[in-house]
Amino acid sequence: MNHQERTHAVLSASGAHRWLLCTPSARLEEQFPDTTSDAAREGTLAHELAEMKLRHYFQTKEFGKRKYNAEVKKLKTEELWQDEMDGYTEIYKDYIKTLALSFPAEPYSAIEKRVDFSQYVPDGFGTADCILLSGNTLHVIDLKYGKGVPVSAEENPQMMLYALGAYQAYSFLYDIRSIHLVIIQPRLDSISEWECPLGELLEFAEYVKDRAKLAINGEGEFCPGEKQCRFCRAKAQCRARAEENVKLAFNPDKGKLPPLISNKEMGKYLAYGEDVAKWLSDLKEHALKECLAGREVPGWKAVEGRGSRDWTDMDAAFEVLKEKGIAEEILYEKKALTLAQVEKTIGKKDFAEMVGGMVVKNPGKPTLVKESDKREAITNKITAEKAFQEEQ
């Protein structure tokens, strides 16, 4: 499949977390161009490599070693190619290979399968990265190459829509009773799995049908929030989001209150402020674009930021300096690459084999996250176990 030419439905599976919560947003977004980024193009390239690896594994006769090597060679000529893509997509392939080998018989596999869930969502379709069918279980597996935040497979609307499409395609051949969803994010060392009975998926389908009917007509109530606004193309100009964030930022609770806020209130205000900060950032970015395009934003203007200096010809300049008696040692400094740069240069696998035993992972600086974060909470309060160890 040519990943660059993937088409997207108005009510896309990837945007379901948005239009299911904020139904009018899908039509509102249509007024704004659907732009891409280097990170998105890099993800597309990684998906193409991952697809080739799975085809080579599951469809060896049609996609043999010679064809596989030729296709990978083409990918390596792409501007955004990184050697580390090979290792990260290998993690994805190895997971699927291990899963397939765990079944009592070879599973049915579909790679980059276009699935249709229009029975529940008007003109609804999408592309599932990998589908495996074995026994009574439908497995839907998704590769996410980004390195932003871990994405959970639990009740994930995008994955559940893919599963609905796959169920529609294969239920007449397979007695599907269970749904197994997997999201693999190799750059975050994250594999999230979730399983549910078919009945739960079909209950979700009925909920989706009602919400999709509103969304396709641009109806329903706007429901701004950090999760649904994050990738919305209308986020900078959305009136509902603006009003919600102004309310959160400038309308504190009324009434007689103590002079100091409690920890409970602190948690509440942190949650309130999270999208306020993002909204202001989005607003400033959009206002700058408007000013640069020659359109007036009252009270604001675009100016040139602080510039920087650079050589017109560094080698020639250094030659002049050396001719004037400046020692070469003063002009250059010997600087080691960082651990991450060395690993990227020689490859993750070779790095682990050669010097993996000489690496120690230092604890990170404490940071505040939401309670839903999977990492273990830390505290400066010493535990009884540690205190006993110190006494010993």
Results as ranks from 00 to 15, higher is better:
residue 366 P to A: 04
residue 33 P to T: 00
residue 341 Q to T: 05
residue 335 K to M: 14
residue 372 S to D: 12
residue 380 N to G: 11
residue 200 E to C: 01
residue 378 I to G: 02
residue 119 Q to E: 15
residue 159 M to E: 14
residue 164 L to V: 04
residue 187 R to Y: 07
residue 349 K to I: 10
residue 173 L to S: 09
residue 266 M to Y: 13
residue 299 G to V: 00
residue 3 H to Q: 10
residue 315 D to S: 08
residue 29 E to T: 00
residue 361 K to S: 11
residue 230 R to G: 02
residue 190 S to I: 03
residue 285 E to V: 06
residue 141 I to F: 11
residue 35 T to S: 08
residue 378 I to E: 08
residue 97 K to W: 12
residue 207 Y to Q: 14
residue 306 R to H: 12
residue 100 A to P: 01
residue 292 L to R: 14
residue 88 Y to H: 15
residue 176 I to V: 07
residue 37 S to V: 01
residue 240 A to H: 09
residue 176 I to L: 15
residue 356 G to R: 09
residue 330 I to G: 04
residue 195 E to I: 09
residue 8 H to I: 05
residue 121 V to M: 10
residue 170 Y to P: 00
residue 168 Q to F: 08
residue 360 V to A: 13
residue 344 K to P: 02
residue 91 I to A: 12
residue 153 A to D: 06
residue 137 T to R: 15
residue 351 F to N: 10
residue 223 C to N: 15
residue 9 A to Q: 07
residue 264 K to N: 11
residue 73 K to W: 06
residue 31 Q to P: 00
residue 46 A to E: 05
residue 339 L to A: 12
residue 51 E to L: 04
residue 199 G to L: 04
residue 68 Y to S: 03
residue 83 D to G: 08
residue 64 G to V: 01
residue 74 K to N: 10
residue 11 L to Q: 01
residue 107 P to T: 04
residue 113 K to H: 15
residue 41 R to A: 10
residue 378 I to F: 09
residue 235 K to W: 00
residue 203 E to N: 14
residue 109 S to N: 09
residue 166 A to K: 05
residue 314 M to Q: 13
residue 355 V to L: 13
residue 268 K to D: 09
residue 34 D to R: 06
residue 186 P to L: 03
residue 197 P to H: 12
residue 44 T to K: 06
residue 90 E to Y: 13
residue 361 K to G: 05
residue 158 Q to L: 04
residue 342 V to E: 11
residue 159 M to S: 13
residue 70 A to E: 14
residue 104 P to H: 07
residue 371 E to R: 13
residue 95 Y to G: 03
residue 386 K to A: 10
residue 94 D to N: 15
residue 240 A to D: 04
residue 118 S to L: 06
residue 35 T to G: 01
residue 93 K to E: 14
residue 175 D to R: 14
residue 228 Q to E: 08
residue 210 D to G: 06
residue 16 A to T: 01
residue 226 E to M: 08
residue 205 A to Y: 09
residue 274 E to W: 12
residue 68 Y to R: 09
residue 171 S to Q: 14
residue 322 K to L: 03
residue 226 E to D: 06
residue 76 K to S: 03
residue 157 P to G: 03
residue 241 R to F: 08
residue 345 T to I: 02
residue 260 L to W: 13
residue 292 L to N: 11
residue 264 K to M: 07
residue 174 Y to I: 02
residue 165 G to T: 04
residue 114 R to M: 13
residue 293 A to I: 03
residue 25 S to H: 01
residue 115 V to C: 11
residue 212 A to G: 06
residue 50 A to D: 00
residue 307 G to F: 08
residue 36 T to H: 04
residue 254 K to N: 05
residue 157 P to V: 04
residue 61 K to R: 15
residue 232 C to D: 00
